[in-house]
Simulated assay, not measured.
Amino acid sequence: MLAAAALAIAGVAYSSWIFDFIVPTGQDRFRSFLSELEADDVPWHQVYSYGDIVAGVAAVGASLLLFGVRPAGRGATTAVVALGVFGTATVADALAPMGTVPIVHAATSAIAVFSLFVTMGAATWSAFREDNWPIMRTLGATTFALVAIATGWMLGSDRLQGDYLLGLAQRIQVGAMSVWLLVFSVGTWSSTRHARRPKRVPRRR
């Protein structure tokens, strides 16, 4: 239950960029990087930095809690460990904004995204092959596919000349990642509840 709560917090906090729709910062939402929201000269930049820090700490907490119950199978173990790496890299990413230490920020951002991809892939594989987190076979896999499509769009936009709405692609990517963390939270809660449910003893005739 605690792990599910931590994952839910991570998913909500990782979507702190939505605050830009409430109090506009003037950034072009179709073309700017989300990391630009954390620059010191951006109004309310602390909201985005603290959002990432909370998301990262919650993800690390969820990883430790899940690892403590000994996840069944290599896929599940990989997903849980990678979740912890994602959380750690996300905190480091927030502490090294794009405008302050660009090289470190680029590295931590890449590690965070890659490790969350590993988490999503391993959790999906585990759902199919190790019978963990059944919801990850359907809603989880669908959300993962959306993340993959948005990531491909974003990488292409960053490398091709022209206006390919890179910012929109990244917002869809990160938004889908947040949704995936929430789905994983539901899957974890459901699996924990099912595991605690007492088994029925067949009646003797």
Results as ranks from 00 to 15, higher is better:
Ile9Trp: 01
Gly11Asn: 04
Gly11Trp: 08
Ala13Gln: 04
Tyr14Glu: 06
Trp17Lys: 02
Trp17Gln: 13
Phe19His: 14
Leu34Ser: 00
Glu36Ile: 01
Ala39Glu: 12
Trp44Lys: 04
Gln46Leu: 14
Ala55Cys: 12
Val57Pro: 03
Ala59Val: 03
Ala59Gly: 04
Val81Trp: 05
Gly84Ala: 05
Ala89Asp: 10
Ala94Phe: 04
Pro97Met: 03
Pro97Tyr: 06
Thr100Trp: 11
Ala110Met: 12
Ile111Trp: 06
Ser115Tyr: 01
Leu116His: 11
Met120Ile: 14
Met120Glu: 11
Met120Gly: 13
Gly121Ile: 04
Trp125Lys: 11
Ser126Cys: 03
Ala127Gly: 03
Ala127Phe: 09
Phe128Pro: 01
Arg129Met: 09
Met136Phe: 00
Ala141Gln: 07
Ala141Glu: 05
Phe144His: 14
Ala145Lys: 04
Leu146Thr: 11
Ala148Gly: 05
Gly152Gln: 07
Met154Leu: 14
Gly156Trp: 12
Gln161His: 11
Gly167Leu: 09
Ala169Trp: 00
Ala169Val: 02
Ile172His: 06
Met177Lys: 11
Met177Pro: 02
Leu181Phe: 13
Val183Met: 05
Phe184Asn: 01
Ser185Ala: 14
Trp189Met: 13
Val201Trp: 05
Pro202Trp: 10
Pro202Tyr: 05
Arg205Gln: 13
